[in-house]
Structure formats: structure tokens, C-alpha cells
Design a protein around this nucleic acid. Sequence first.
DNA 1: CGCCGTGTTTTGACTCCGTCAAGAGAAGGT
DNA 2: ACCTTCTCTTGACGGAGTCAAAACACGGCG
Lengths: 146, 146
Amino acid sequence: MPTERATLAEELLRGAGLRSTAPRRAVLEVVLGTPHASSGDIAGQLARAGRATSRQSLANVLDDLTGAGLLRSTQPAGSAVRYEARVGDEHHHLVCRGCGTVVDVECAHGAPPCLLPAGDPGFPVVERAEITWWGRCAECAGSPAR
Amino acid sequence: MPTERATLAEELLRGAGLRSTAPRRAVLEVVLGTPHASSGDIAGQLARAGRATSRQSLANVLDDLTGAGLLRSTQPAGSAVRYEARVGDEHHHLVCRGCGTVVDVECAHGAPPCLLPAGDPGFPVVERAEITWWGRCAECAGSPAR
DNA sequence: CGCCGTGTTTTGACTCCGTCAAGAGAAGGT
DNA sequence: ACCTTCTCTTGACGGAGTCAAAACACGGCG
């Protein structure tokens, strides 16, 4: 299965017009396998797999992949930026206040901005709505607040 | 007007059961006058007014005021935490991608979570929905992206 | 086949924001 | 007036992101 993901990563990169380099493939494979990973999570996985990269490279790669539309980023309040490879739709996120786990939530509308502000927004351009729900996952439903 | 805001701050603090101290009044006055200010913004204003406080004190005060329900915090992706004194409703925010300006958007529903995830959320508890719209303010409607 | 230019990665230093820990100081009750 | 408790300050630290510049690798061209 690493092979499957490896060739998938390769194809995705070429399809986006990016050079298929080792760090890019490695990062993309990690995000494909671990949605909502932070840059720290990714660095950890890469290091454990013997494919460590510098912080700066990781940042470059994540920027490149995001810019090319292969990744999407999201940043729940209080958290580092998280990356996911699910880019084909306008889904949203539900975050656990206890452990920080993020799960995807289908968007009821589909097309951005997917929801319009009530009343006059005050800005001439409104491109996108981002909805974050906060709650508690099954494991954290017992008390301790964050 | 500083006087008005000063006595208002005093009343708010006492009403919330907090001691009315100089740093708390000062911070509250700044946030009353500058909604969506970051801790850095607040520190700057305090310093310019000759009422500088340490970073730690500022953090303490902001935590206390937020915990007492006098302030609400929000953190648009890529920004520092921002504070506002509008705590009576469940409004949302519209953020300019160019300059970071934040404006309030009325909530069409009113009561939290104000919007429910479509389909099975996956968590047993969903307390709150937070909606952030991204766009461009009048001044930034000309090109440069962020 | 080998050179060269562009795109990619690495290194190292730095900033910003937030937090931990512990001591100094002020407020209010008895 | 004293003492307990809350509040504020100081100083050190860590995580996450960024800037700048040097090293490297790929791929086209001569």
C-alpha cells in the first residue's frame, strides 16, 4: 500500500505540473494517509520513516502543494495549521475541544461561498465561508474542558 | 469619552465579580474602543498611553476577562487571537484576506450552536458553530493576494 | 556528452505569540 | 494593623512560522 500511495502521489504531482521530488512525494503520502496533520505531525512521521526534511523544506513543500491545489489547509483556533488532501469539495470541520481531533463535515450547499452572510456583509467581495463546529468526541465526552 | 469608558469598564468588572484593577480597566477600555484587537495591538495601545503592562499580565488579564464573560476571543486562520467586548450574541466574522481587518456579521439564528452539521456529525456533543467568511474589504478589493 | 540556468532543498538565524515558574506587590477581610 | 489571597512582574522557555543565502539537482541546450 505504500506503493499505491507512492504512485498516486507521483501522478498527483505531475498532474499539477509540479516536479515529482522525494520530499514532495513523501509529504503528500503522509497527508494522504493522515488527514488534518499539522506540519509537526508530518515532520514526525517523515523522521520516523527515515525521510526527515528540514523545517523550511517542509514549509516550502506544503506551500507548493497547497498553491497547486493538491492540499488544503485549515487552522482551528489554538492549533497549528493542518493539511488535508481532500480538495474536491467545500467540506467543513468539527473539532474536539478535548483532544483536538478534527473530523470532516459534509457541506450542505456544495459551492463556495456555500453560505452567505446575513445582511450587508460590508465587504465588496466575499469568496468563501469556513465553518468550524466545536464539540467533544466520544472519548472526551467525559468532562475535562480545554 | 475616556471617562465614560473608564467608568463603564469599572462597572463591568465589578458586575462580573472581578476586582477593578488598573491593568484590567486599561485592557477593557482598549478592547471596548478597538474590537478585534490582538494582544499585540492591545499592548501597543497601552504602551502608547503610558500604561504598559508585561506580556504575562496582559495574558492573565485577557484570560480573566474572557473567563468572566466580559470578552470573547476569536482567531482567524493565520492571525493571532483577537478579542472583542461584544459578548451578548452569537455573531460571526468576515475577514479581509488583504489587510486582516475583521468585521462582525449578524448571526441569522441567534442561539448556539446556531447551525448544525449536515448528516451525522460523528461526535456525541456539538456545542458551537463558528463561521468565518473570507473576502476583501473595499480598500483591498484591488488585487494583491495573501 | 557536458555545461548552465532554473527550480528545489538545506542551513542558520530570527520573530512572534503564548506559557511555565516563582517572587514581589497590592487589596480586602477580621 | 495584620494576614491571607489575589494580582502583577520578571525571566526563561517552547512551538510554529519566516527571511536570507548558500548548496544541490534536474533537465534543456549547445
